[in-house]
Amino acid sequence: MINADTPSNLMPHPPPADVDRHTETTIHQLLTAHGLLLNRARRDVLHVLLLARHPLDVDGALAAARMNGSHVSRAAVSRFLNLLNRLGVAEVAARRDARRFFRLRRKTQTISLSCVQQNRIIEVQDDAVADAVQRLLHGMGYRLAEGIHFRIEPLSAAAASALGDDA
């Protein structure tokens, strides 16, 4: 029984119905294997990542967790995202200045296109392009560490119409 003066971060909070239970269980087992707990704050951030349609930075994950009623701190979000990254569960999908945008690792490599002018991240899943980048890196003695990220900008109207004329 929970009394009224129980801190809200200890109160039972049902996870969103759309959360991928298999991934959540796998991450929970991985944390346990490393001697870490999936406490309330971490669970709230994990649910945000599981439901996210786009990569999130610390502030985006914090805002989403708080919209779901969490009282997690910014520092806890940052530490957990970095932990998931170190454990290989999450990756840095994009960077904008000093901000890093995280997402859970996927089986299919995703290409992130970051447009600063439009303040958006576009994600493309194209196995042929991802494989070409992997082959290029392997040929040079490297492997992909954080995903494929391109910084892009919109074409001018003149450049876009010139491309259309060539097609």
Results as ranks from 00 to 15, higher is better:
77 V>G: 00
162 A>V: 02
5 D>P: 00
80 F>W: 04
22 H>P: 01
98 A>N: 12
36 L>D: 11
140 M>R: 10
22 H>L: 07
40 R>Y: 05
98 A>D: 14
68 N>Q: 14
71 H>K: 11
39 N>K: 14
155 L>K: 08
136 L>Y: 08
14 P>W: 01
34 H>N: 13
159 A>S: 12
104 L>V: 13
16 P>V: 02
141 G>A: 04
59 D>S: 12
90 A>K: 07
158 A>L: 10
11 M>Q: 11
140 M>N: 07
61 A>N: 05
47 H>E: 15
88 G>T: 08
98 A>Q: 14
158 A>W: 07
8 S>E: 07
57 D>M: 00
14 P>E: 05
99 R>D: 15
156 S>N: 02
12 P>H: 06
129 V>F: 08
153 E>F: 04
43 R>Y: 08
141 G>T: 04
123 E>D: 14
62 L>F: 07
70 S>D: 10
74 R>F: 02
83 L>N: 08
32 T>D: 15
165 D>W: 02
81 L>P: 06
113 L>S: 05
23 T>N: 04
152 I>F: 00
18 D>A: 13
76 A>Y: 02
81 L>F: 04
64 A>H: 03
125 Q>M: 12
49 L>N: 03
64 A>S: 13
60 G>K: 04
104 L>T: 11
14 P>S: 09
38 L>Y: 04
46 L>F: 01
97 D>T: 12
56 L>V: 15
164 G>R: 13
41 A>M: 11
64 A>E: 12
137 L>M: 12
31 L>C: 01
